[in-house]
Simulated assay, not measured.
Amino acid sequence: MKVSVSMYSVNSTIQKEDWSTIDFINYAKEISLDGVELLDMYWKDKDTELEEVVAKLKELQLPVSAYDVTNNFVKESAKARSLEVEKINDGIEVAKKLGTKVVRVFCGDLHGDLTYEDGQDWIVEGLTRSAEKAEKEQIYLAIENHGLLAGKSTQVEEIIEKVNSPYVRATFDTGNFLLVHEEPENAFDRLREKIIHIHFKDFREKKPDESTKGFRSTKGVELIGSVPGDGQVNLSYIVNGLKEINYQGWLSIEYEGKDDAKTANEEAVRRLRELLEQGGENYG
């Protein structure tokens, strides 16, 4: 299995030091990553930057593990949902230029009085439309378990099955299941045959005396992003499970803590490589 880091994993550094995508790629090479995961939200001028990024990736011989699109199908306007389909279709074109076979996608965000049941038809409709292009280009759309819509493994599974395309699979985020109070091990067992991409992430519960603002779960519990191995996720279970199914894809680190992002990611890379070499025993 190959190790990459999501660009979002160093978001605080990007904001603080005004990094470009090129800066991130150079950093990834410095810490000896196998590849990088890039996001649509970081383009300043995509048309200009994309050509430069492709050239830099070729120069440094760094592949792209996935290209992430920040779409949202939970919109009551059909026109607005069509724009989200266009966003994913554009992401497929960018992915082709970047040389990756995976486009990470979202389902959508809850707002107002809407529920998952309200939004599910819109999500399935949008992903079905985008899957037409994905199938033609042989690019996988990888649904991330994210937020309150498709945050649970049952929801991800249900949407994948309803879209019913071999090119719509799962980005398995190891940490996000904790935000909907699902054990990541159970989620893995449910989705293991549908995984095409992994976000290697960990969370811990906020301590009573901490002032740091965390991510609030569906039951109001605050979780703090941590370096993998310092939180609640049984990462060894997931790594060993991936070996059992002969997973050949990427493990992409996504750190969402408050410590220095560069230092945290470098430690995360070290731990993940160690975990892969050891087989995952007694970790997490």
Rank of each mutant, 00 (worst) to 15 (best):
Ala150Gly: 14
Tyr167Ser: 06
Asp209Met: 05
Glu158Asp: 15
His111Lys: 09
Lys201Met: 07
Leu141Glu: 01
Phe203Cys: 13
Tyr116Ser: 05
Ile139Leu: 02
Gln138Met: 06
Glu193Tyr: 15
Ile139Gln: 05
Glu210Asp: 14
Ser153Asn: 03
Glu125Cys: 05
His111Tyr: 13
Gly147Ala: 01
Ala95Tyr: 06
Gly119Lys: 03
Gln138Thr: 05
Arg190Lys: 14
Val180Gly: 13
Arg192Tyr: 11
His197Gly: 08
Lys101Trp: 06
Glu86Ile: 00
Glu117Asp: 13
Val105Ala: 05
Glu137Ser: 09
Leu110Arg: 08
Val102Leu: 06
Leu83Ile: 08
Ala131Cys: 04
Gly147Tyr: 05
Leu127Gln: 01
Arg104Thr: 03
Glu161Gln: 15
Glu185Pro: 03
Lys152Ala: 10
Leu179Ser: 12
Leu179Cys: 10
Thr154Cys: 09
Ala78Pro: 15
Ile139Arg: 02
Glu93Asp: 11
Lys96Phe: 08
Asp121Pro: 04
Leu110Glu: 01
Arg129Phe: 11
Asp109Val: 14
Arg204Trp: 10
Val103Gln: 01
Leu179Phe: 15
Arg169Ala: 13
Ala78Cys: 07
Lys194Gly: 08
Glu161Met: 09
Thr174Arg: 07
His199Met: 04
Ser82Val: 01
Ile123Arg: 04
Phe200Asp: 02
Gly112Val: 00
Ile92Arg: 02
Asn176Val: 00
Glu137Asp: 07
Asp202His: 10
Lys101Gly: 11
Ile198Glu: 09
Lys96Leu: 12
Ile160Trp: 05
Ile195Ala: 05
Val85Leu: 05
Glu86Ser: 11
Thr171Phe: 07
Lys133Gly: 04
Lys87Leu: 13
Lys194Val: 01
Thr100Phe: 07
Phe200Asn: 04
Ala78Met: 06
Glu161Asp: 15
Glu193Ala: 12
Lys206Ala: 15
Glu125Gly: 05
Glu117His: 12
Asn145Glu: 00
Leu114Ala: 07
Gly151Arg: 04
Asp189Glu: 14
Gly108Ser: 02
Gly175Glu: 00
Lys87Gln: 12
Lys133Asp: 07
Asp109Ile: 14
Arg192Asp: 06
Lys96Thr: 03
Ile198Cys: 09
Val103Trp: 04
Glu84Gly: 06
Arg104Ile: 00
Gly126Trp: 00
Ile139Pro: 12
Gln155Glu: 14
Phe177Gln: 05
Gly151Met: 04
Asp109Met: 12
Arg190Cys: 10
Val85Lys: 00
